[in-house]
């Protein structure tokens, strides 16, 4: 069975503690709920959830949408935001888990990557060195979400084909974002030219697309 692997990288650094992380969880639930209404997604989408703060955790390994259960997500009180380390981990997981086509083996759909952060990477050197590594993995699309006033959309733009910004970090904003993610994911399983990036639907009005 060919899968559509979706990698979600969520910032859980200290600044996300409390309301913001609760809002992210609400958004994540709405993402799962709307994907579960899409039969194609239900049969193909597999989600891997990673969180990053001072460390990177594989919270849920690549799991089918049917089996995916929202996990506990914890945030430390404070500490650095190891975005670069998270990208390094994603590359390892993609290399390990995503199936490539061979003459006698059917490959997966091109994986998708979504990165949500409310601040700047603390490990800037690693972050910058991981950008070409991530791009070498040939994701169908890489979407960055810069949430809240302290986020750095410019930093994400170096990595992502699409960057959206959220002015606020409430349940409404994250739900809008994740709903948009769900339409992007629903478009992930269609034939595409070699190396062509995946087209994305326009985002809803309350999230801003950074060009």
């Amino acid at each position: 069975m060919r899968r559509l692997p979706v990698y979600l990288l969520l910032d859980t650094s200290g600044s996300m503690k409390g309301e913001p992380i609760e809002a992210v969880k609400v958004g994540l639930s709405s993402l799962l709920a709307s994907l579960r209404k899409d039969p194609y997604a239900l049969e193909t989408v597999h989600i891997c959830l990673l969180t990053f703060d001072r460390e990177v955790k594989d919270v849920v390994p690549l799991t089918s949408l049917e089996e995916f259960v929202i996990p506990e997500i914890n945030t430390p009180q404070s500490g650095p935001t190891m975005t670069g380390l998270a990208l390094e981990r994603v590359c390892q997981l993609v290399d390990r888990d995503v199936e490539r086509s061979t003459p006698d083996h059917r490959g997966d759909w091109r994986p998708l990557l979504f990165v949500m952060t409310d601040g700047a990477a603390s490990d800037v050197a690693l972050f910058n060195s991981m950008i070409p590594e991530v791009q070498r993995r040939r994701f169908g699309t890489i979407v960055g979400c810069a949430a809240g006033p302290k986020s750095k959309p410019d930093e994400l733009r170096k990595l992502c084909q699409h960057v959206v910004t959220l002015d606020t970090m409430d349940g409404h904003a994250f739900t809008s974002f994740f709903q948009w993610v769900s339409t992007a994911v629903s478009n992930g399983n269609q034939s595409a030219g070699l190396g062509a990036p995946l087209g994305l639907p326009p985002p809803p009005t309350d999230i801003n697309l950074v060009f």
Binding site: S101, N189, Q190, A192, G193
Partner: peptide
Amino acid sequence: SGEFSSET
């Protein structure tokens, strides 16, 4: 076909 499914 390409590296991934339905790449052509």
